[in-house]
Design a protein around this nucleic acid. Structure first.
Lengths: 344, 344
DNA sequence: CTGTTAGCGCTTTCAG
DNA sequence: CTGAAAGCGCTAACAG
């Protein structure tokens, strides 16, 4: 049917070529901005493409060896607003170009990860943005060797030097703890994140270093191993508050757990910050909304997305560039959840 | 190079075919679960594929006319957590299948929308999930005519009957208002959303109907036109509170604006809910976190994503099925931001 | 500057 | 049940 063709935009370069009276090779050149086309011819072709509503077929292009004009983003999941922030940054930056975004969620399945990566790197996308909080997978080696452009986000690369952007987690852990000690706290509880994640380890290390700096003795009972989810914040706080000598402040490795801490504190009839100070990490949107507003470490997630995208774009342009790691600074955001400890 | 081939997984069906001692047509059949393959042969091929780490090339498959095994999701942007929730639902449902998700953000550019849709519908994806809060675009017609499977999300389709899932916005508007009147309020302010969105209109209508039901006279000064963003909630509340006879309750068309309302109330030295009751709409995660916790209308965003995905999956299986619209119920979530009005 | 010719990797007939 | 052959729409040499 005639109308069907128009409707479906099943217009190919051959159709355009016929209509414009040129060979389809010329149409291809026009599409790819090849210089070797007479201005006049180009105009005629462009006009025809518009008239026919031609839209190049992506799979054909990439199959034939051209660019796919899209970049792939691989994330573990969409569950935590955390990833959403990063994606927003990526999207914002990408919208400035004509590249499209293909999103893959691996749902923390290692096999899916590998599968996707090989698939994507085989022409489906021009570059890859990987949000892989877990341990470095083998395909990073492959990617590097095959010189496929990619950037790691928020991944504490275990020694490998490949392009990546992360946050100053250690610094954040240190600063928050330092702030608490300056307030006069000496019993500071810490709830870790999943310890198989580099960022969780770094935050804990920062906390420990600060204590050492301020000559506060180690107290293993004040370190509770969490998993970055709210319930662990709650139970961690409960456990610590049950101690004979409970902490006067609790520093949770992320905001979500800090909110769990707040709940636990309140459920015992205690108040934040009067009885217990609370600090979080991430500075997610909710942090400024809860009451009392949460003092936390700002981690520039959206910016991490943007910067990573810019790095990738740069890599796409200059494939020979050296890989480097960018570490974005974290900042202490003082709000209302901390106070000097009561004088007993 | 030899290792390069292994590294890149540039293994094609031809390689597999050679290794397994069959023609590449047979390998294709195995991939597509064609019944016409001897069990023994199939096993040998599967074994070979695994050994070689074969991963089928998506673009080639879809170019050659097969399925692309991915569905496209078109959203206006990622700015509001609102869309994120929907995507989460989609992703959750999709993770149960072997379909991949390709995400496109149009950044509210009509031309991009059209472009993407035609592109995607030309084999790049097997189906489309469209989050198009704005007015119905022409391509919906095209899509319908070309019988391409798609589902609209949160789109008050202006008469066209195509598969879509939405929420009971009218009902929500009605219920919230009714709740307020039952509490004893008779001066209830309303802050609308962007009135070019169907959902905003429906919520306003629900509000009006409830007032009528309870014989509360019209008061045009109590309706403030907002845009779904926080600042408008703030200024709307300010305007109404300046009235000679200010409202004792304010119902905002979404939670974000409701939070603006709360701020405005507090900034005048008034308290929520003692002096002014506040109700929102959406029930975003923050709603339960702010103090006082926000009473609001729960809109099942994540579920909308899930249901839409299920509908699309169904459409993919049974292309002949009739289009239908599913409306998910909204619920009043009573928290701490409302109270009976003071008796003066 | 432009037309022609091979494929890219895979699905689908069509013959055996 | 399986092999062979013909493209899908496009890019990238190669000739003019």
């Amino acid at each position: 049917m005639d109308f069907d063709k128009q409707m479906n935009s099943r217009i190919t370069i051959v159709d355009v070529a016929k209509q414009a009276g040129v060979s389809f090779g010329t149409v291809s050149r026009v599409i790819n901005n090849d210089v070797h086309v007479k201005k006049e011819t180009r105009e005629r072709v462009v006009e025809t493409m518009e008239r026919l509503g031609f839209v190049a077929n992506r799979q054909a292009r990439s199959l034939a060896g051209g660019k796919s004009n899209s970049i792939g983003v691989l994330v573990p999941d969409l569950g935590t607003g955390y990833i959403g922030e990063i994606i927003r940054g990526i999207d914002a930056e990408l919208s400035l170009t004509d590249l499209d975004l293909i999103l893959y969620t691996t749902h923390r399945t290692a096999s899916k990860e590998t599968n996707y990566v090989t698939n994507l790197a085989t022409g489906m996308v021009d570059g890859l943005l990987l949000v892989l909080p877990r341990s470095p997978a083998d395909f990073i080696g492959n990617l590097t060797q095959s010189k496929f452009p990619f950037v790691l986000i928020d991944h504490q690369g275990a020694g490998r030097d490949c392009p990546s952007v992360g946050a100053a987690n250690w610094q954040g852990g240190y600063n928050a703890t330092e702030y608490l000690t300056n307030l006069g706290h000496t019993r500071i509880g810490f709830i870790t994140g999943s310890m198989d994640l580099g960022c969780a380890v770094d935050r804990l290390d920062g906390y420990r270093s600060a204590l050492r700096t301020y000559h506060i003795p180690d107290a293993p009972e004040l370190i509770y191993e969490g998993d970055f989810f709210q319930p662990d914040g709650y139970s961690g706080a409960q456990a610590m508050l049950d101690l004979p000598e409970p902490p006067t402040a609790i520093f949770a490795s992320n905001d979500v757990m800090a909110m769990g801490v707040m709940d636990a504190v309140r459920n015992r009839g205690l108040r934040v910050p009067d009885d217990v100070s609370v600090v979080g990490f991430d500075d997610i949107p909710q942090a400024s909304l809860v009451r009392p507003a949460l003092t936390t470490i700002n981690q520039p997630l959206e910016k991490m997305g943007r910067v990573a995208t810019q790095m990738l774009l740069d890599l796409l342009k200059h494939p020979e560039k050296k890989a480097d790691r960018i570490e974005l600074p974290t900042h202490l955001i003082v709000r209302d959840s901390c106070k000097s400890p009561r004088l007993d």
